[in-house]
Structure formats: structure tokens, C-alpha cells
């Protein structure tokens, strides 16, 4: 799916101009006059990035960022603002914004940020997808298998795991084999990696 650049600004002329600029660079664009509009109409599975004005009547840009996080809506955010006060800038960047553009900004700044954002978004989506897949695999494990998986990932020997869990080593071995199969891990090293990746939030 092609990434979409979502633009949110309460000033209609700025909104249309910026949208046009991004469109002229060949991106797919959708524009919204307010954050509420954006929430109503967009879907979380659309890749892309978000270009948003920092100060808007209903919801400030920062608040939007927080709201998206809460909703599990992951999109890289690029802020634009007429102000350059340090407080807002720092807060925005700390919140994880890709960039902070001060109006009026040159197209290069904006488009570079968009490129970075969309690239990042794709990466993150891929990473998320990957992690979800691995998590799904992990969910296939029974509780006992999960326990064994964790000990193995921790680097314990079968003997130790048996002692820890109070079961026979042979049983451990059997569990381990089943775990390896369910996780589709060809080796212990791989298993460790899988578990690691699945654990990443």
C-alpha cells in the first residue's frame, strides 16, 4: 500500500497550500481541518506520516500525538508551527516527532522530513508486523512450553531447567523440541532471537 501523507491544519489556505505542495512532489495526500476530522476519517492501517500544525483550537498538536499513542495509532509526526518557542519545540521532539518545521518553511525541509517519516513508518510497520507474527507464534505455546522456552532463551541447560521446573530432563527435551517446532526456530540461537524480537514492544 502506498504511503499517504496526512496533513492537519485549521487554517484552510495553509492546509490547501501544503497539501498541494506535497502532492506536487508525487505523494498521496489527505487533508483535514482539525484533529477530530482526522480521527474520524483515517484508518490506522494506512501507512504514511502525519504533518500537523502545533496549535489548533480543539486539540494541540502535542495532544494529538498523545491521543494517537493512546489509540495505538502509530504514524510518524512532523510538526509545523508559526512559533519557535523553545518549550514547545523541546516537548514535541521529546514526544518523538520526526521534525519541527517553522512557518514559513521551504519545500525541501518538508519533503525531506516526509521522506524520512514515510521510510521510518515502513520500517516500523515491518518491524511491528514481524513482531506480531512472532508473538503469534509464541502464543501457540502452552504455558509449560513457554516456561521452558524462556529458560532456554536464558541460556539454561536442560538439566537446570528440569531442576528448576521439577520435571524430568527427558520431558524438558520433549518440550524444547515442541517449542522449537512451534516457533519455527532451527537453532537455539534463532530461538533466542525470536523471543527477543517478540518481546520488543
Amino acid at each position: 500500500m502506498r504511503p499517504t501523507v496526512f496533513v492537519v491544519d485549521d487554517d484552510p489556505s495553509v492546509l490547501s497550500a501544503v497539501g498541494r505542495l506535497i502532492r506536487s512532489a508525487g505523494h498521496k495526500v489527505e487533508t483535514f481541518g482539525s484533529p477530530c476530522e482526522f480521527f474520524e476519517r483515517s484508518r490506522s492501517d494506512e501507512p504514511g506520516c502525519l504533518v500537523v500544525d502545533l496549535r489548533m483550537p480543539d486539540l494541540s498538536g502535542l495532544e494529538l500525538q498523545e491521543a494517537m499513542d493512546r489509540a495505538g495509532y502509530h504514524l510518524p509526526v512532523i510538526f509545523m508551527s508559526g512559533h519557535a518557542d523553545i518549550q514547545s519545540t523541546v516537548k514535541a521532539m521529546q514526544g518523538g516527532a520526526i521534525d519541527f518545521l517553522i512557518k514559513p518553511f521551504d519545500e525541501r525541509q518538508l519533503l525531506e522530513a516526509i521522506d524520512r517519516a514515510t521510510a521510518l513508518d515502513l520500517e516500523e510497520r515491518a518491524a511491528r508486523a514481524d513482531r506480531d507474527a512472532l508473538r503469534a507464534r509464541l502464543n501457540l505455546l502452552t504455558p509449560r512450553e513457554r516456561e521452558v522456552c524462556m529458560f532456554v532463551a536464558a541460556g539454561r541447560l536442560n538439566k537446570q531447567i528440569a531442576a528448576e521446573l521439577g520435571i524430568a530432563e527427558k520431558t524438558v527435551k520433549a518440550h524444547r523440541a515442541r517449542v522449537m517446532a512451534k516457533l519455527q526456530a532451527p537453532s537455539v540461537a534463532e530461538l533466542v532471537r525470536i523471543v527477543d524480537r517478540a518481546r520488543k514492544a
Binding site: V14, A17, V18, L21, M80, K103, P104, F105, E107
Partner: peptide, 10 residues
Amino acid sequence: LTAILSNAQA
């Protein structure tokens, strides 16, 4: 001003 610059570059 912002709108003008973006429009022009677009």
C-alpha cells in the same frame, strides 16, 4: 506567507 511559499513551490 506560509501558504504563499508552499503554493509557489508546488
